[in-house]
Every structure is written in structure tokens, then in C-alpha cells.
């Protein structure tokens, strides 16, 4: 019996990759709780590190894993549609504050992308890297769609999302103190707009009002960026 018969048998169906993902996800959450939920180390990063380590140890190529795991990732489509439900539930907030939000959102959401793009461009990053960083403040399911549209690397984008989310959670408290802001609605909105899901989780730790506004900021930034960025990218003709 050849040495590689067992791995081949295990990976004959996608169930191995799916089970592996569940395991890493649940273990990641467990470790996260044991470490008292550190802001700088989100559960998803722990889980991803575990998963990468397991793949490296058992010698399963990433491409093969990813292919089998598409049984899970195909659900991202309906899951993105599902985000319409919390968005609908945010409607009263949108109606109450529509004027400041309508002015703030386009400016802040554009700048969230533009600051990073300008710095990367000045430091000589390639068009493909720029395309991977552009959606850095958008919630993952929407950002993946945007990045595929404009031709970036989804793997790099997801790494960028992690860094951005963690940085946002760390900076918002600091900046709010500096600007003497103690309105939870403003702090929450800034967390969701810049830090997508990771920022929103942080906001719910502050207060339910901050959490609600973070969800709102996250949804609106996602929609605005999804509608504007691919079009702007095409008009400017970045990358080609």
C-alpha cells in the first residue's frame, strides 16, 4: 500500500476540508475565549493560523483545500444577501440622522480607501496590490466581490481586512479621547465604517448603541463602496 493512500482517501470528498474548517473555527473561538478576548488577536486570526498550521503539517496543498472548502464558501453569496435583514432593521437610525450620515458617509468611506491607496502608491506598490487593498474597510463578503471585480488578490484583501479591523479597534478609542468625543453613536459609526465586522464587534463591547451604529456604518460603507469603487476603478483605469 503506497504511503499517500490515506491522505488521498481522506481528501476524495470535500468533507475532510469542511470538517477541518469547522475544527479550526471552533478551536479558534475556544482559544479566543480562554485568552479573555484580546482585541489585537481576533478569533478568526487564531483559527486561520491553526488551519494553516494543520495544512502545513499534513501536507495538504492550499489549492486542494480551497477547492474542497468551496462547499462552504459558496454560502458567502446568500450570506451577503442576508445582510439586507440587519440593514432593514437599522432603518429607524438612518431616518433619524439621515442628514449628517448622507454627508459623512461618502466622504469618510472614500477616504478610508483613498488614504491607504495613496500611501501604497507613493511607496511604489503594484496595481495588483492596490486593487487588493482598495476594499480594506468593507465587510468581507462584500469586499471579496469588489476585489474580484477590480482584479485584486482575495487572499491579500482578507489579510488587509484583518490588519485594518484590528488597527481600527485600537485607534478609535485613542482618537476619540484626542478629539474629546464621548458620543457612543459617533464612536460606533467610526468603528463600523473603518473597521467592518471586527470594529463592529468592538463597538458592541462598548454599548448596544455603539454596536447599532457600527452595524449601520459597516452596511452603508459596504454598499457605497460596492457601488462606487468598481466604477471609479474602471474610469481611472488603474492597472490597465
Amino acid at each position: 500500500m503506497p504511503a499517500n493512500a490515506l491522505p488521498d482517501a481522506l481528501t476524495a470528498t470535500p468533507l475532510f476540508a469542511v470538517g477541518l474548517t469547522f475544527t479550526a473555527y471552533l478551536l479558534g473561538n475556544l482559544v479566543f475565549k480562554k485568552l479573555k478576548q484580546p482585541t489585537w488577536l481576533p478569533a478568526i486570526l487564531i483559527a486561520a493560523l491553526l488551519l494553516a498550521a494543520i495544512l502545513a503539517i499534513i501536507g495538504l496543498p492550499y489549492a486542494a483545500y480551497r477547492q474542497d472548502a468551496s462547499w462552504l464558501t459558496v454560502l458567502l453569496g446568500p450570506a451577503t444577501v442576508a445582510l439586507g435583514m440587519p440593514l432593514y432593521q437599522q432603518m429607524p437610525h438612518i431616518r433619524a440622522l439621515w442628514r449628517p450620515l448622507t454627508i459623512c458617509l461618502p466622504i469618510a468611506a472614500s477616504l478610508a480607501a483613498c488614504y491607504a491607496l495613496a500611501i501604497a502608491w507613493l511607496m511604489g506598490s503594484s496595481p495588483q496590490i492596490l486593487a487588493s487593498l482598495a476594499a480594506k474597510s468593507v465587510t468581507a463578503p462584500i469586499a471579496i466581490g469588489i476585489t474580484e471585480q477590480i482584479g485584486g488578490s482575495v487572499a491579500l484583501l482578507l489579510g488587509a481586512l484583518l490588519v485594518t479591523g484590528v488597527a481600527t479597534a485600537a485607534f478609535v478609542g485613542l482618537a476619540a479621547r484626542l478629539l474629546k468625543i464621548d458620543d457612543d453613536r459617533i464612536i460606533g459609526f467610526a468603528l463600523g465604517l473603518n473597521g467592518h465586522a471586527i470594529g463592529t464587534v468592538r463597538a458592541f463591547e462598548i454599548s448596544p448603541a455603539a454596536g447599532a451604529f457600527a452595524s449601520l456604518g459597516m452596511s452603508l460603507t459596504g454598499i457605497f463602496t460596492a457601488l462606487i469603487l468598481p466604477l471609479a476603478w474602471r474610469l481611472i483605469g488603474v492597472g490597465g
Binding site: 476540508a17 474548517t21 478568526i44 494553516a52 496590490i129 468581507a140 488587509a160 490588519v163 465586522a197
Partner: peptide
């Protein structure tokens, strides 16, 4: 959602070599 994006997140560890020399710009930008 977090679990659904995990297979993609793991991919970043497998492009580390490809992006050698680019990391400073990427991290500064982010």
C-alpha cells in the same frame, strides 16, 4: 460569516513569499 471567509483568510499565509519586499508598503498603507 467569519467561518465562511476562513478558507480565504488562510490563503494570505501562502502568498507571503510572493509579496516579499512589498510588506512595508502594505502595512504602512493599512
Amino acid at each position: 460569516l467569519a467561518m465562511l471567509i476562513m478558507p480565504g483568510v488562510v490563503g494570505v499565509f501562502f502568498i507571503l513569499d510572493e509579496l516579499a519586499g512589498q510588506w512595508l508598503a502594505i502595512l504602512c498603507a493599512l
